[in-house]
Design a protein around this nucleic acid. Structure first.
Lengths: 330, 330
DNA sequence: CTGAAAGCGCTTACAG
DNA sequence: CTGAAAGCGCTTACAG
């Protein structure tokens, strides 16, 4: 037999509206009644039905994280896994649940998928990988529907977002490579139109320009393994005189390029490596590597806090929160 | 102004029950009406409210994954990240959503948290890391409430689960170490009472016993970094004559032990390493390593399919689905 | 096929 | 403080 607020009301000899108030800690219940009701609830282990509550309050108690690529791909890198876990932790702490939303394998997330989720009110708000959103139009629609915050600022619109100082980070990494004596530094980056790629390339160029070194050896690639390997191979062939390499992204992207490097027969230790995004793997390699370590967890936590406070009607003072990277030398 | 099934009904000049049937593809609507209704829905971009639907149907369209440790810890390893992503992918494919549920940082998941989720019907079913559930009592309660499947079989009860052939996998890895000429093989494992630890230790022992080698050098550890390092250090001190090491778990556990190995001044290349759970990191180390690669994605996908079919009223023929590991030589 | 009505389990004015 | 009633947006018998 199913336990509802009605049963509790009968047991406590009050109206169900009173039970509701007691559960939700609202004013308007005598202390005696409140005590008794809560005790009964405790005893019979009653839990209000989430769907009913959501319907009545027009609030689901869930937020969503929208992964930029299909789940298998996104979560295979440490970055999104850390983001998801930080958000889950914060959401759970605030008695919300986290929903994982991702495009189907090999596809980009279709606008319709967003809409369905937004409009069907499966969640109260969304945290979204910025590179996912490519058009102003989409943005305009979304904004009216539901609160959300971006991971990474979105060039198309000014909105709530957490981001890392991409340009500064890249600048520092490359400057460190220069300090180490490298003069011919190349760069392989992610997709050219991604905002963070653009910013990191800026940092790369400025650092080299400052030391009056060539800053034009740049290749862009999608993150697919196939394309990365092709791009890297071509890049190394064309620029076989480089003595250092700046990789403007982390995760599997780096591993794939390192593999190309390894298979090319070159001694990896002879070329300096700068990477935007640290990884514990580097601890176990004897290569000289400079990395920009992002405070991923902090960013995820902050994004979740930001979103939840928006949902609760409090506007954060800053729309855009920047975090600094930490330069790690190896 | 909010769009509901009522508005659609008015626009289409039918009753809302007819709209409902059309949306859900049920019998009992004329072809003409169905067409018109769906067209209108398309046009105004209507999406039925998820909470209302959930309440009426007593079905949320969401499943949950319960992580064994807090989210940050669990998802920092590749294993749970892969499980989560595989489940998310399958759930999304079947038009369900995935909810990530995890204990608060540093805590174990409390029984109450389970209960709250189960009873509040936030999800239709749960996928659970088996090591999470430790007592028969809890199990008994849970079973009545909600469908679920375990990742890893649970010793306390016979229930739906996917698992890997832990014993066989460990056996093969250790046998391979023996083939490579190692004779003094030690083992560091995870928590002693975890089912998979027990199984892998069995495999370890049997492989050594078969070759009439000492199979008693075993240490257990929790997965905390601190404890792992302490355990490993003590183990190496006590058994400084071992020529190979079998690590009965993967992820950060391995990295932590490798770090101890590295800092101990020993040449890691001189000792054979066997690891239960492959990692791409090993590609970049020049150490000789034998690993058991679990088909993690397949397991996650299978678990999700299993759960969703149970939710939809179809009982899987097998309660327990075993997957084989792949032995990877490096 | 069609639609009016009851019901899902809550919350929220509102009157007493 | 208290409770009866309406409402949240759907689904599902049921009668026509």
């Amino acid at each position: 037999m199913k336990l509802t607020i009605n049963e509790i009301a009968k047991m406590a000899n009050v109206a169900k509206s009173t039970v509701s108030k007691a559960i939700n800690g609202q004013k308007g219940v005598s202390e005696a009644n409140r005590q008794r009701i809560l005790e009964i609830i405790q005893q019979v282990n009653f839990q209000p039905n989430a769907s009913a509550r959501a319907l009545a309050q027009n609030k689901t108690g869930a937020i969503g994280i929208v992964l930029p690529h299909d789940a298998l791909f996104s979560l295979s890198g440490a970055y999104w896994a850390a983001i998801v876990s930080a958000i889950a932790a914060e959401a759970n702490k605030q008695n919300n649940t986290l929903m994982v939303i991702s495009p189907q394998e090999g596809e980009k997330l279709k606008f319709e998928s967003f809409e369905r989720i937004l409009k069907s009110h499966g969640v109260d708000g969304l945290i979204i990988g910025a590179e996912q959103i490519e058009s102003q139009t989409i943005m305009n629609v979304m904004i009216q529907e539901i609160p959300f915050v971006f991971i990474g600022k979105n060039p198309f619109i000014e909105h709530f977002a957490v981001d890392v100082n991409n340009k500064d980070g890249a600048f520092c990494v490359v400057e460190q490579l220069i300090t180490r004596g490298h003069k011919k530094i190349g760069c392989i980056a992610g997709p050219e139109h991604y905002d963070y790629t653009i910013e990191r390339i800026k940092g790369f160029k400025e650092a080299l320009e400052k030391s009056e070194l060539d800053n034009t050896k740049i290749a862009y690639s999608s993150y697919s393994k196939e394309d990365t390997i092709k791009t890297a191979s071509a890049f190394f062939e064309k620029n076989n005189d480089i003595d250092a390499l700046f990789l403007a992204a982390g995760g599997d992207f780096v591993l794939n390029i390192m593999e190309v490097l390894r298979l090319s027969g070159k001694d990896p230790k002879s070329i300096g490596l700068g990477v935007f995004d640290d990884s514990r793997i580097f601890d176990f390699l004897d290569w000289p590597i400079v990395t920009a370590r992002q405070p991923i967890e902090k960013m995820g936590t902050y994004a979740a806090k930001m979103l939840l406070s928006i949902i609760n009607g409090m506007m954060p003072e800053e729309k855009l929160k920047y975090f600094d990277v930490e330069i790690v030398l190896r």
